[in-house]
């Protein structure tokens, strides 16, 4: 049995790594839950954003935070264009999965053509910074990621709960015709949400560039676990996605510390299956 310090460190690292799951899950959860569009391309968009951050950082020495100012709005624009396509071709839930998967594969190829399949690492002086809290080390970048993910998830949750636009989106997801009968222009709101969701992929991409080693095939590395996170966190619930991400991250990390790294994926999918079979009220 590993020591308490090791377990504590595993828990901290797990929760922080889970912040990335949560951040990546945000857009998928919103789009799936509120627009009934399962948008897999967010994984590829996040990596596109990461590669762009890498490129701007290594070639032009642009600070990643400034790159984000440029890249995130571009992702929003891509999200808006995507919704235009979904709307024009009346894409349904299943078709959206296939179309966005195809789009992601195309993006993967484009990324590979430009940046090759080599591993890329964006070295910054932040990447090794960490705070020491008692016996534990907290990596600063991951902490910032979690704070940003938390702020976005919390803000989005409040937006959906407290504003008329947010309530209209939730109502429209339940019964679009009746929401329209009360004046909700679903299409207009869907463009907005589609843009926001893609924008979150852009934010995730900035952190991927700083934290991860980039390779085109890595686009799919998080697909499975983020899917589990989206479902466990409840579709359309941004705070749920964040907490589920952190819970999965923590359990994976503990499983790795107690058993072996190979057990990590077993944990997340076991949790998913148990929760789906259990089917609790809050799901």
């Amino acid at each position: 049995m590993p020591s308490a310090t090791l377990l504590g460190q595993a828990l901290i690292s797990g929760v922080l790594a889970g912040g990335m799951y949560g951040l990546l899950a945000l857009g998928l959860s919103l789009s799936w839950g509120l627009l009934r569009l399962v948008n897999l391309s967010y994984f590829a968009l996040a990596f596109l954003a990461a590669y762009l951050t890498y490129e701007l950082g290594t070639t032009y020495h642009v600070e990643p935070w400034w790159s984000a100012v440029l890249i995130v709005p571009s992702m929003v624009a891509i999200g808006v264009v995507q919704y235009w396509v979904f709307d024009k071709f009346k894409v349904n839930e299943l078709a959206s999965l296939l179309i966005t998967f195809s789009f992601a594969v195309i993006l993967e190829v484009v990324i590979q053509l430009y940046w090759t399949a080599d591993y890329r690492r964006f070295e910054t002086h932040y990447s090794t910074l960490s705070i020491k809290a008692g016996p534990f080390y907290i990596p600063v970048l991951e902490l910032v990621l979690c704070l940003v993910a938390g702020a976005l998830a919390w803000g989005t949750w409040l937006w959906l709960r407290k504003t008329y636009v947010g309530k209209a989106l939730r109502a429209s997801a339940e019964d679009a015709d009746i929401a329209a009968a009360y004046g909700v222009d679903h299409k207009k709101l869907a463009y907005l949400l589609s843009g926001i969701s893609a924008g979150y992929a852009g934010v995730a991409g900035t952190f991927i560039a700083l934290i991860a080693t980039l390779a085109p095939a890595q686009i799919w590395a998080w697909l499975g676990v983020v899917f589990a996170v989206v479902i466990i966190g409840r579709l359309g619930n941004p705070l749920g996605a964040l907490f589920a991400g952190m819970a999965i991250g923590a359990s994976e990390s503990l499983a790795m510390a107690v058993m072996s790294p190979a057990w990590a994926p077993v944990v997340s999918f076991s949790v998913l299956i148990v929760i789906l079979l259990w089917d609790p009220d809050w799901l």
Partner: peptide, 23 residues
């Protein structure tokens, strides 16, 4: 447009209520 009927002053109490049950 369908979503502008309400702005003209028409409101529907639909068959089977059709509430937003998760709200």
């Amino acid at each position: 447009k369908p979503h502008d009927y309400c702005a003209h002053g028409i409101a529907l109490v639909p068959e089977g209520r059709r509430l937003f049950v998760k709200m």
